[in-house]
Write a protein that binds this DNA or RNA. Structure first.
Lengths: 146, 146
DNA sequence: TCATATCCGAGTCATTTAGTAGGAATTATG
DNA sequence: CATAATTCCTACTAAATGACTCGGATATGA
């Protein structure tokens, strides 16, 4: 029941992009340095976010990445689902209509799984990238004034 | 971000035990038949639940397992945490005080992980084994009357 | 005493995770 | 136009985890 590094690194990368790609392209290299994530691996992660439509790229010198939308239009849920797949704790008919649960068809546990996934999705869909950027800026400032 | 079979099978086993161990000992074999889970594997899972104190055993002929408490005194959260470990999506200083997060120490993502784990724990701690037993009985009866 | 159970350590196999490596394609800039 | 900077893409690998299986030791009611 853990998120993989994709989700963790990817969310940090998106926060980094939100802060640094206001007008400039941001290169993998610079994100990788700030966030201490390997360039090669970060590249793969950002490829997923690009495929999902939250990031656009420009190739060649001075190229890099930018967000496709404003940070308040991208939720943490959008990002995590792009990187981790659905956030359901179990693949089961209630949460995933077109797949019949192979386990005992009248199994009450599915009600539990449904409530868990609803609550997770509710949390992550109600936090925007902008919210995190704001919190980050606040933290950075309170660190500065020490 | 998935539960393992331990959590899924284990919860079903506990519901089965709650329904069938009112007075009798319930053997692995009988649970395994009703729930269609391999005996060997189920044994390992129930061992975890025993270690966590939710199940007691009697060895030898006519032996088997029983719950240690009434089903309304055991929450789904108790069961899942016994089988899966903590239900936090990330091991991080906010959710796990004695371990410092190796990733950027002032990382705002930890607020996200905290909110996710709070919401998961809130859901599972507010469903008791008895609740599931009740739902199961209801389903079984409505199937019967068809 | 024997059939029925739990207990328990070890082993296996497949999948997933978490990367690395290296080169092709693209493009701004001097 | 050459070059350095950059994304893009495929293939590979090592380690960890998940999902079991096997076989025998131990306990016990009938």
């Amino acid at each position: 029941m853990k998120l993989s590094t994709k989700g963790r690194y990817g969310l940090r990368a998106m926060i980094d992009l939100a802060i640094h790609s206001k007008e400039n392209q941001v290169s993998i290299k610079s994100i990788s340095e700030r966030q201490e994530i390997s360039e090669n691996y970060l590249e793969r992660i950002i490829a997923l976010l690009k495929k999902a439509g939250y990031v656009k790229s420009t190739r060649g010198a001075q190229g890099g990445y930018m967000l496709t939308k404003k940070p308040d239009q991208i939720s943490v849920g959008n990002i995590l689902r792009a990187l981790e797949g659905d956030l359901n704790p179990v693949d089961c008919s209630l949460t995933n209509d077109d797949k019949v649960c192979s386990e005992s068809s009248l199994c009450v546990t599915k009600f539990v799984w449904k409530r868990i996934s609803d609550s997770i999705n509710d949390v992550v869909d109600n936090i925007s990238l902008q919210d995190l950027v704001n919190e980050q800026i606040e933290i950075d400032q309170s660190q500065l004034s020490r």
